[in-house]
Design a binder for these strands. Structure first.
Lengths: 219, 219
DNA sequence: CCTGGAAGTTGACGGTGTCAACTCGAAAGT
DNA sequence: ACTTTCGAGTTGACACCGTCAACTTCCAGG
């Protein structure tokens, strides 16, 4: 049983005086996540995470094959959180159109709140995320939530019929692109004057156009 | 005048026997670009680029403040090429709807052809791309061609009236998101059975839905 | 009680970005 | 024509990183 701190969470630091750590793997992932959000992607490394866990520099190799493996574990946690928040958003809106919008909003919200994590999840830092089956599965679950929401909207007659993966591709591209542009600072000028929920408003703008189209009607 | 090889291009390697290089800055950017596309983002570094130019490891510091600066120079070249290809695509299609589609296609094409360059241009490797005014200006030029194409389509009555930057945001998000998903391998399964111009077809699918909308008409 | 193996340690190797101090060579000034 | 100056390139060093090999410590099962 892992040692826990006063809040009931497991402590990151090593159990004093004990040779073995108790739950080093968990502590390392936690430390890497913390490092990632505080110092950015350059600050996260095996040695730094080991230091944070109060353990020697090569101890991580007992639990992770290499640096990619620990980053993959962090990414997996990110995908899990993304999937949870997306399906919660879908559950809370039974209007299928609002559900689809809410899914996009949580996607963009996660990216804006924790940009480094978002980049890690989709970027090249962890080489082939799909080799680790946990990461693949966590990502798939999030995608499935989107697909279900689209199929529901089609059944409700809100979205046009046809292959739901077609619409999923468009919706995902729009939302993911907006999230990426925000994370990479490409929209900071536009967001500057919009207050704290600028990302949500931009998501509405983009999704609205995807739903209704931006062609001139009956020209 | 820089030394040139038999093809008329400047040679990357140092002019033999000469202390000074001639055009080391150019050679370093060229070497870094080459390194980036061959070995990925991890393979590009000051020392490696210096080796490729046949020069000592600290020589780059005479031309670049730090690693970020040389990466920014590479990114700038990427933005310049993106802008050129986008405006060429716009020029070649006088039908404004096709022009807008062609712009998206070249965007996705550049990303698919040179994923590492695309990631460098938008990713966090170079910290604040907008501090270097050349990079900012090159990126702005590409954005401006998109904006012009949209304004043209509005004047032609193809796109609905209103703030063109609204439509630009949606279009850019869709195309950039698709490009990112392709680059990050998130669509490799879908692309696997589509042959070499799968990216172009996916771009059409996504843009088509953005233009016409994906809601059920007159429910 | 002994023993085998998992978990953690020390030490080392090659690689990196970056700094300081040095040297070379060509152009500028007299 | 000789000297000065200064940009451009060099060597050497430092701290950091990921990773490997060999060693030590602890715990559990026979």
């Amino acid at each position: 049983m892992p040692n826990r701190d006063t809040n009931g969470r497991r402590a990151i630091a090593k159990r004093a005086g004990s040779f073995h750590h108790g739950d080093l793997r968990w502590a390392l992932v936690q430390g890497a996540m913390q490092l990632l959000e505080r110092e950015g992607p350059l600050g996260v490394g095996l040695r730094a995470a080991a230091r944070l866990a109060g353990v020697s520099q090569t101890a991580p190799y007992r639990h992770f094959a290499d640096k990619d493996a620990i980053l993959a574990a962090v990414a997996e946690q990110g995908f899990r959180e993304l999937g949870d928040r997306m399906s919660a958003a879908a559950r809370e809106n039974q209007d299928p159109r609002k559900a689809l919008l809410a899914i996009g909003e949580t996607y963009v919200a996660l990216a804006s709140e924790r940009p480094h994590l978002f980049r890690l999840m989709f970027g090249p830092e962890v080489a082939d995320k799909d080799r680790c089956p946990n990461v693949k599965e966590a990502g798939m679950r999030a995608y499935q939530t989107l697909l279900d929401a689209i199929a529901g909207a089609q059944r409700a007659g809100v979205l046009c019929k046809g292959d739901p993966t077609r619409i999923a591709l468009a919706h995902w591209s729009c939302v993911h692109g907006l999230a990426s542009l925000i994370v990479d600072g490409r929209l900071s000028e536009r967001l500057a004057g919009m207050g704290p929920d600028g990302p949500r408003m931009l998501t509405r703008v983009v999704c609205e156009q995807l739903f209704t189209g931006c062609e001139e009607k009956c020209a």
